[in-house]
Design a protein around this nucleic acid. Structure first.
Lengths: 338, 338
DNA sequence: CCGGTGAGTTACACCGGTGTCACCAACCAC
DNA sequence: GTGGTTGGTGACACCGGTGTAACTCACCGG
């Protein structure tokens, strides 16, 4: 009778029915310590009875902060993006936060303006920046300017711990290439990622590190560059396989390019791994599903995203979260001894 | 001086500086028609000068509606989910809507409660339901109960047009199998999707349709079931390839299982497509990147998601959006004539 | 018996928008 | 000149929460 017929119950309804002020109801919701136990129980009973849930928009307005975190990304790899989303979700589960996604176009000249409009319009609490766009310092500056908290993920540490969650691509690639060297390979080709990507640069450094440690010389004849796509992997594979002596192993900077190298090898009638060993990076779905299954480097994407999200939303837990994650070599069937 | 040092400008700031009431500013923002041109220009100048952007939470509170739409999904295929996200984003670009994502666990007994909590807590304007979870009628009912608008995507029409965007999997599979028959195949194996998935049932019906039209008998010896994963595709492939006479072609209900069949064939020393033709469904990344590239059925996922989002947010445009989308057969290299 | 203390609670303004209605001036018909 | 429209604007309450300060009431010591 007193309650609007279709509207959801509000704090006023609860207060009236429980016979207390709305502020007291607010205290119950927010678990305020100075609250008489009997009052709390009475109010909680009414809340349960009415099925009352606080209105997040009203809360956001009064608190001058909201509970939305954004994921800004420009990543062609669907599995990575979804892994990140899952990771963030596991961090915000059972909190009042929600995840807003915003794919952007790295190549668009309006990219920064787009992000600015998005942030101004939605007034997010904070954002997560995913590679490769996370490498753009202008984005971090924009967030600072607009008062939006931010954490970026990346392949190498770029900021202080509270703003950064990094894998260590250089070290991981060095381990993978060292593994090939350990299997007797001496002529190991390298397919780099595109110029301008920090991950590509880091992975290339890892390759050099491994050769250096083993006392092997760098030979630019067996180094090629792709842009992380299957097609450029084929082209790079063709180039490397045309050299003499032919490499006995190739490390590709991501799985798609590794699949392209495999494709190129097959076109030339080479068997993998008998004639050529191949190692990729990322451990995306394709790695396990091609033939032969690809030995590759897996980085803990969900765990990283979860840590990043916690840094964003929970200052108390933030310092307990690692900023640095280790990758593993996943051995499958695309590597044989030389 | 008058303006808080760190806070963003509010409608009050604009009103005071422009020398009008806040209601007039509100009218400018909302493009009210009864507004003197000179007043409008004056206010717009102040808005531009201050960089004023309306607070979405305050707006949501006053309007008793917000501008968040949710994507609820439980889909193992990252590419599909991301395609949907892109599609939705292209629909809400340049609107004030934002996209909130919510992966759920289909198998969890708490799934419905999770969704309920999510919807009650966030008070979304509306949600998009993705298969396979979109097939759950209880979800649609829950949305109706909570007053949340909804549109579901699926492989077959389940609701009235305003709630539904469907591909036509049955017809698409029938076309694909007819294509195999047209290439001379008479013994065509079928790998079904998991029981309980509407898409799986529809695809199986399409297979039967095609055999019927060609006057071919159904042979359950060359039908197997998988759960849309690579591994179950291998198992299904092994089963079908063990029959005599061996099928000359196999249609798998998704690409991952098709890749599994390919894997099984290769293990038995069979060449594809010389000894066995294979057709998949979905045209995910894996289809183009395995060897040989997979002939498969592509459904217009982004366009469907875009149409679904428009139905949700724009009643005026909604009736102009199709509810029914057609799939294409993408011919690659995994099919040869019998 | 009285003033001080602190726990528990309330009244009220406020967050930043929108809806309603009153209001005013200009214009019109009579 | 009067009364009735109409276009344009403002005052004020309201949406549903939270912060602040003030209040009430036991309980305490002197």
């Amino acid at each position: 009778m007193k309650k609007a017929k279709d509207g959801k119950p509000t704090i006023n309804d609860v207060a009236r029915i429980a016979g207390v002020s709305k502020k007291t109801v607010s205290r119950v919701i927010n678990r305020s310590p100075l609250l008489n136990g009997a009052t709390r129980e009475k109010v909680e009973a009414v809340i349960a009875d009415l099925g009352y849930v606080p209105n997040p928009q009203a809360r956001a307005l009064a608190l001058r902060r909201n509970f939305l975190i954004g994921l800004i990304h420009d990543n062609p790899n669907a599995q990575m993006v979804l892994g990140v989303q899952e990771g963030i979700l596991s961090a915000i589960r059972d909190t009042e936060f929600a995840l807003v996604v915003r794919p952007v176009n790295r190549r668009s000249p309006d990219m920064l303006d787009d992000v600015r409009t998005f942030l101004e319009q939605q007034r997010l609490f904070g954002v997560l920046l995913l590679p490769p766009i996370s490498e753009n310092d202008a984005l971090a500056e924009l967030c600072d300017e607009l008062g939006v908290a931010w954490v970026r993920m990346g392949s190498v540490k770029l900021d202080e711990d509270q703003h950064m969650v990094a894998s260590n691509d250089r070290e991981a690639v060095a381990k993978a290439v060292a593994y090939l060297i350990g299997r007797g390979h001496r002529r190991i080709g390298f397919v780099a990622g595109p110029e301008g990507f920090r991950s590509a640069a880091e992975r290339a450094l890892g390759y050099r590190d491994a050769l250096d440690s083993a006392g092997l010389a760098l030979d630019i004849a067996i180094m090629a560059e792709g842009n992380y796509t299957f097609e450029t992997g084929i082209a790079a594979g063709e180039k490397l396989l045309a050299t003499t002596p032919r490499p006995t192993a190739i490390f590709a900077s991501n799985d798609e390019m590794a699949a392209g190298v495999l494709h190129a090898a097959r076109k030339q009638g080479l068997s993998v791994p008998e004639d050529l060993s191949i190692v990729g990076f990322d451990d995306t779905a394709i790695a396990a599903h091609i033939w032969p299954p690809l030995t590759t480097v897996r980085w803990p994407i969900q765990a990283m995203a979860k840590a990043a999200a916690i840094k964003l939303i929970d200052p108390a837990e933030a310092r307990r979260q690692p900023s640095h994650f280790l990758s593993d070599l996943i051995e499958r069937a695309s590597v044989a001894s030389a």
